[in-house]
Design a protein around this nucleic acid. Sequence first.
DNA 1: TGAGTTTCTTGATCTATATCAATACAATTT
DNA 2: AAATTGTATTGATATAGATCAAGAAACTCA
Lengths: 193, 193
Amino acid sequence: MFELLFKSITDKIEISLIELDSVQSFFTTKKLRRKQYLLQEGDVCKYIAFVTKGVLKSYTIDEKGAEHIIQFATEGWWVSDNYSFLTGLAASYTIDAMEDSELLLITHAAMEEMLFAIPKMEKYFRILFQNNIIAIQNRLVCSLTQTAEEKYKKMNDDYPNIIQRVPQHTIASFLGITPETLSRIRKQRAGKD
Amino acid sequence: MFELLFKSITDKIEISLIELDSVQSFFTTKKLRRKQYLLQEGDVCKYIAFVTKGVLKSYTIDEKGAEHIIQFATEGWWVSDNYSFLTGLAASYTIDAMEDSELLLITHAAMEEMLFAIPKMEKYFRILFQNNIIAIQNRLVCSLTQTAEEKYKKMNDDYPNIIQRVPQHTIASFLGITPETLSRIRKQRAGKD
DNA sequence: TGAGTTTCTTGATCTATATCAATACAATTT
DNA sequence: AAATTGTATTGATATAGATCAAGAAACTCA
């Protein structure tokens, strides 16, 4: 259950088994069925979640009811509405499971306690977030500069795994294009590469 | 010189004056003239920089020589190519000054030393980066969902200050639209609000 | 199993924004 | 002050991708 989290931590910082054991004690586990919510827009994001199994998506919903995907989270990734989690204010993102999933949850209070008890975990999260910034900025550049086809190709190269596990119209939303456009791109591309 | 940095720190964590004094010792100062580079694409990003005066932009350059703005940094903001800074590999962003500017610089080695000497600075950067993620994700959502006019209006609301200090075609690039489109939007909008 | 839902495809049409081009204006530099 | 360079405007035209619409697969779950 905790191996993936421990790996994520030991990849970034030096930490003893005893301390890892202590880290573990601040988390609770949760299973989500496909389509179940972890967080609904307007609620307060009580936990940040580490995915040990499954796929989740976080997204906004516009006036027309269309979803705009912020992030996919699979095994080994964190997911939350950072803004709501930090401030305690209403979340603007919805998070739900796209497959039956298993999570490690930590509340805001438990997080504070953990960081106080094991200060080196600050470093873990600092590095985690720094890597995250790099990834999101990269995605932002792509969204500003690339054509629909280039975006899809890059998605294929970077996250082949996600493409296989997630419906096509959800990929389209993640890339900021319509499902119709993605369908046409795939048709054109068939056979390429 | 260091007041703005100290403010940024004390806004986020509890820290003594003695420790702040120690923080200060890890930085060097630098002045940049308008149009001078802090970092050129392909070089290694040796420093992260805290802006105490002026405006900088970080951007990529495409095959056609067009700039795509990643970020503006004014007084009180950090700027760097995080990826290059962390890995020591070649930077994909260029950073230069749009006004005569003053910076506080810290090298990778000095940063490591500082975080070792004053571990609570990990918390400062963790919070800084967490806030950064919120901001970039927010920008990403806007770039995926909003029209050119909505983007420009939001930019006006969120960063009126930047709009006044930065040429219009650079704002356009930041928003992912052409200068011509921005010019037309401004014409239409004249008188609105 | 089969009725309902969800997802994908394809075609016809529309539109926001890009591109190309020319001019005018403003700000630096010599 | 002239020359150079950078910036903004405006018009004409092109186009990538959106939207609308309808049918075909592909799943799910009673």
